[in-house]
C-alpha cells in the first residue's frame, strides 16, 4: 500500500489579472517520479513554489505527507523540512564552500551538531561524485558541478519529496548528463520526485508518470510510453512535436 506524498486539489493562483494556476489537481504517491512538461508560462515553476510555500495561492488545497501547506503559517517550516528544491540557476551560496553549503541547513535549521553535519556533507559529496570538491567555492565550479552540490545540499535535510525546477536548462550540454545521472540514481533509490524539465529522454527512462501542464491545469497525464508516443490531447501532441 503506497502512501500519498502529495495532494494538490483545485489550486488557483493569480498574479494580478493573470491566472497562472487555474484549479489544478493531481496526486503523487510515495516513491513516484512525476515529470511535468509544458510550454513556458504554463505555471510549472509557480506550481513547484506553491508546494513548499515559497508562493501563496488563492484557492484550493495542497498537502505534503499529510501536512497542509499554507505559505504564511508557522507550520510551513515543517513542510519545508520534508521538501527539497533544486533551482534552474542552482542558487548556491557563493560565500560558502561546497561542503559548507551542504552543512548549513542541517546545522542551523535543524540544530544538528557540527560533526554530524560534516559527516553528512562528506557522504553526500561522495554520493554525487564530488568527494574532492568540498573545499571549493561555487565560483570555482562548473554548472553541472554546482547543480550536483545543490542536490547534495537539498538531500542533507533528508527530504521525503524533491522538487526539480528545470534543473538542466541552464547547463552546457556536456554537463547535463552528470546531473541527470545523479537524479536517476535518486529515483532508483525510491525518492519521491517532481521534475519540471524539457529532457524527454529522462522522462521516458526514469519517469513513472508524465503531467502535461498547459494554461494552469493538467491538460493530460499518463505513463511516459503512452503520453509521449500516443498523446490524446492535440495540445500535448503539438508541444511534443515542437520539442522533439
Amino acid at each position: 500500500m503506497t502512501a500519498e506524498m502529495l495532494a494538490v486539489d483545485a489550486v488557483v493562483k493569480r498574479y494580478g489579472p493573470r491566472t497562472v494556476l487555474n484549479g489544478i489537481s493531481f496526486r503523487v504517491a510515495a516513491g513516484e517520479v512525476l515529470v511535468v512538461i509544458g510550454p513556458s508560462g504554463g505555471g510549472k515553476s509557480t506550481l513547484l513554489r506553491c508546494i513548499n510555500g515559497l508562493e501563496d495561492f488563492s484557492a484550493g488545497r495542497i498537502a505534503v505527507d499529510g501536512l497542509p501547506v499554507h505559505a504564511r503559517s508557522a507550520g510551513i517550516w515543517e513542510v519545508r523540512k520534508r521538501v527539497g528544491m533544486i533551482f534552474q540557476h542552482f542558487n548556491l551560496f557563493p560565500h560558502l564552500t561546497a561542503r559548507q553549503n551542504i552543512e548549513l541547513a542541517p546545522r542551523r535549521a535543524l540544530g544538528l551538531p557540527a560533526a554530524e553535519c560534516r559527516a553528512r556533507a562528506e557522504a553526500l559529496l561522495a554520493r554525487v561524485g564530488l568527494a574532492e570538491f568540498g573545499g571549493q567555492y561555487p565560483g570555482q565550479l562548473s554548472g553541472g558541478q554546482q547543480q550536483r552540490v545543490a542536490i547534495a545540499r537539498a538531500l542533507a535535510m533528508q527530504p521525503k519529496l524533491m522538487l526539480f525546477d528545470e534543473p538542466t536548462s541552464a547547463l552546457d550540454p556536456e554537463t547535463v548528463g552528470e546531473v541527470l545521472a545523479v537524479m536517476k540514481e535518486l529515483a532508483l533509490g525510491g525518492m519521491t520526485m517532481i521534475v519540471v524539465t524539457h529532457e524527454l529522454n529522462f522522462a521516458k527512462e526514469v519517469g513513472d508518470r508524465i503531467l502535461f501542464m498547459d494554461a494552469g491545469v493538467v491538460a493530460e497525464e499518463g505513463p511516459p510510453e503512452m503520453l509521449l508516443s500516443r498523446p490524446q490531447n492535440p495540445r500535448t501532441r503539438q508541444f511534443i512535436q515542437a520539442v522533439l
Binding site: L54, R80, M85, N91, L92, F93, L104, A105, A154, M157
Partner: peptide
Amino acid sequence: NEQRVAARALGLK
C-alpha cells in the same frame, strides 16, 4: 532574491 528563496526552501527562517 533567489538567495533568500533558496535559504527559505532549505528551511532557514
